[in-house]
Design a protein around this nucleic acid. Structure first.
Lengths: 206, 206
DNA sequence: TATTAGAGACTGAACGGTCTATATTAATTT
DNA sequence: AAATTAATATAGACCGTTCAGTCTCTAATA
């Protein structure tokens, strides 16, 4: 059991290659070669390619949610401002500044459902769970921001996220997050949350 | 050259299988078998699998845009109402009622960019073009609806579409369109377009 | 009779997955 | 502490299958 765990490195490499080239187009051999790991090492840790895919997506879920939350929280504003800051985080991601040296290739979980369309496939379900976890976080922010209908607001913000991600991906629009942010501001106002552009206001939202 | 063109049937079958199982996961053999067509017939009409993919996506683009526009226009309202009706059309699609007997498996073009992430790959570019064409149509509606910033409104509606599509796909949310529609109403109001729920109003938008 | 279209065998490469032989490590025994 | 044994991780050859794509031979049409 070497210190820089081979298993970990394998999963990390899988995340990168699956993200870049897709799941079906990425062969076991390519991952093995890129990771500098032997075949049996993979099958010692994973039953099949599908299980490696699942492991890679679990790793990605963890990695992404940690980054996303920290990117939002380092903005340091009120919960309402953080909801808006989430769109700035997206643009950082789109520009390739979120995950060191790894260009933006869309959301791994949206991409996963594209390749595994059956809703009860484990991969598809994992993707749905990832989105659910993010929605939960947004719900917390919306609630803290004092939204009347925090479920509805969180759902709306989430939908705007998805829209921005897909627009950035398909149409190479690096600034889709800023466009979505403007819409988010309008939606938040509708939910009784006004955020002035340069604000220290809304302190009563706490 | 038989009357029910083999080439046409091949492309139609490809659209179906690529849509259901993805591009890389769908082998030539499966398409051939499903279409009841011989190998050489395919390579008589297409240089490679990639060209069949492109042909299938072109067919899908045509098919989808025709359906989408007609679904919107048969709602028969004002341009502003049609912008909103687009979300009802999406929900019809999500529920599997748009394309006879073919269950919803997400947008073929979003799915395509998931498998072909390189922005200058012909498949990716075709997907971008498809989105551009839909955006153009929305721009026309937004303009007819009397939007102050028709470009901005069309872009926002498009982003809401993408968000609804992805939410329906990943989270099996058949009613994502209705949620997006509510947001659209708010955004339209912000653009100076009010549409009452049961309206024959806004006739001056013409 | 000339031309074209179709069926199926065939190709080399790549697929996911297995097997075995060899290092490497850890534990046990002197 | 050293030597030996036991256990495990690794490398790379190997398996049958499937991949995209080609070739040839036959059947149908003009």
């Amino acid at each position: 059991m070497p210190r820089p765990s081979k298993k970990e490195h394998l999963v990390e490499t899988a995340v990168k290659l699956f993200g870049r080239d897709g799941f079906h187009a990425t062969g076991i051999d390519k991952i093995l070669q890129e990771a500098g790991v032997a075949r049996m090492t993979l099958y010692k840790h994973f039953r099949s390619k599908d299980e490696l895919i699942l492991a890679a997506l679990r790793r990605r879920d963890e990695q992404f949610r940690i980054w996303f939350k920290s990117a939002i929280e380092k903005s340091g504003g009120t919960p309402a401002e953080r909801l808006l800051a989430s769109f700035d985080a997206l643009d950082e991601w789109f520009a390739g500044r979120a995950f060191a040296g790894v260009p933006f290739t869309g959301c791994a979980f949206i991409n996963a459902t594209a390749e595994f369309s059956e809703a009860n496939h484990p991969v598809h379900q994992l993707a749905a769970e990832h989105k659910r976890l993010i929605l939960e976080y947004l719900r917390l922010l919306a609630s803290s921001a004092g939204a009347r209908d925090s479920d509805g607001l969180a759902w709306a913000i989430s939908l705007l996220h998805e829209g921005a991600i897909v627009t950035a991906q398909v149409s190479s629009d690096i600034h889709a997050g800023q466009g979505a942010k403007k819409i988010a501001r309008t939606v938040m106002a509708e939910h009784g949350i006004e955020v002035t552009t340069k604000s220290l206001a809304n302190e009563d939202a706490y």
